[in-house]
Design a protein around this nucleic acid. Sequence first.
DNA 1: TTGTACGCGTTATCAG
DNA 2: CTGATAACGCGTACAA
Lengths: 329, 329
Amino acid sequence: MTTIKDVAQLARVSVSTVSRVINQNGYVERDTYNRVVAAMETLNYKPNAVARGLVIRKTATLGLIVPDVANPFFSDVARGVEDEAIENGYTVILCNTDWQVTREDMYIQLLRGRWVEGAIIVGNRAAPEFLMHQLEDVPFILVDSRPNQIVNAVWSNNLVGGRMATQHLIDNGCYRIVHISGPEGSPSALARREGFYQAVLSARNVQVSVVSGDFRFDGGYQAAVDLLKCRPHPNGIFAANDMMAIAVIQAANEMGIRIPEDVMLVGYDDITMARCVYPSLTTVAQPAYDMGRTASKLLITQLKHGVSDLQHVEFKPELKLRKSTERMS
Amino acid sequence: MTTIKDVAQLARVSVSTVSRVINQNGYVERDTYNRVVAAMETLNYKPNAVARGLVIRKTATLGLIVPDVANPFFSDVARGVEDEAIENGYTVILCNTDWQVTREDMYIQLLRGRWVEGAIIVGNRAAPEFLMHQLEDVPFILVDSRPNQIVNAVWSNNLVGGRMATQHLIDNGCYRIVHISGPEGSPSALARREGFYQAVLSARNVQVSVVSGDFRFDGGYQAAVDLLKCRPHPNGIFAANDMMAIAVIQAANEMGIRIPEDVMLVGYDDITMARCVYPSLTTVAQPAYDMGRTASKLLITQLKHGVSDLQHVEFKPELKLRKSTERMS
DNA sequence: TTGTACGCGTTATCAG
DNA sequence: CTGATAACGCGTACAA
């Protein structure tokens, strides 16, 4: 391990001089500068970010809390976050909560201890007030969360999205509609469900029900099998995300139930695969990568230029029409 | 910001005593212990991991370098890595290289500076010798890399996998076979391609060619369109990963080319979606999550119990037969 | 233009 | 059982 001291010794200067050339501040003569640079080279010296962080009280790291990176939506968000971060010299710590508030909380404590400069919290379960309290003075931004007026957030309107999806089923003549919802406590899942209720409430002659899923393939598959076993089975399904919708397709295929003839299906997220499954999946699109990137950018801007006004960026959900809701006749 | 000093003051003890109760080492009387705990509670004190890291020279963080977390294979690996890490008190820093060695190198430098205790490098481009030099004394493990005898690694045999995939096409009567390869420099892509060559070499009367892809949907799509425009177009395609294979399906569908009737298709990875696309995708499976988890565990074991022997874990690739290579007649 | 000395928040080594 | 005190590696007044 080579330290600034070793460099100083080799270059026959003091540590402060070395520090000056590293940070490009203060005056240092051309000659000494070169000696120092040479010394750093030969020693293959890398400044120690830990020690440095301790004194300047900045770590140049961000915490990223997502429910599950293995979920395509969140992994896209994560990629956006990291891309923006690294371009600005920040590093990101990855945390998976599986939608458990206890894990969310655990990670927040951990990140605080690690002195992250800011946090990006995706699909959070905990209330914003609670988060503010837990994070204390570390700035953070919510992604894919419930809208609120008190903390920074980038989101897309899941209420409207859920309504659009459901309305689309109604418009296509579905009258036994079920919603496979996301995990309890996922704000976006909640909003989508609310949108579902709003849409069916203003419709007439539709039977509706909601079963709970977990945003994962397996959970969606189970729900779908149970659902499609019923007689009569639903003729319209709105799955709270694409993973579960695709699971529905899988289950339907195996059970010999045709989509869209026997049951129409709408998903949410518009992950890459949505257009490649069979039948291709009608879904509500959200720009995952951009959402992550935007959140990261907003947070970093705040970190660099001091506290700013409350930032709210809203992306519009967009219904992508595909085969899974195409009327046949 | 509250420090150990504040706690000490409030509890009317010295910082060393507070340190003792935090780290559960040394003797401390029941009474003082309680006072200290109480003080920590009321001040909402969190030990500072940065300062702590500086003195004990450990940061309890791992670096995770992947080509692209947005790729389902790598995001599964990432999830496995993080799960094992957090259970052992480690935190992980996420890095995306897009298969660029310069970025790989950049991140390694960065991680070294951050004093990560170990690194997990997935799908690395750089040579192991180079990595050893760059990482110096920070232990690391390779995932999904080219087999070698000098560094720790967990991998699945991509050579065999590639051969299996290709042989399967040959066995099904394909005689104009093309391989859409992964990005140049991806070790797994290279090995799969080699497996492809081995298989076709021992076959007779097959025309073969290789076009280069990038492991991404868009690249695969482009390649597929170009390929399927040819007359006569190939009647067997082995795509180096599922994302590209699914892109092939998409392109074929759009061009009115039937799979498997007109062209058979094999992918690689067996991502969740592989069974849900239409036609369902024959592919070579690798246990992404387990690979990540195993790598993480091996690395951590080494970190905890000191340097150990060279570790090589090999997972067996497994051909999953599905519709995309089903003979029709 | 350069060097000295102190402090960042913690742990660890000693005395007591 | 407890308390000073010296590190850890680096940035930065302040002095020279």
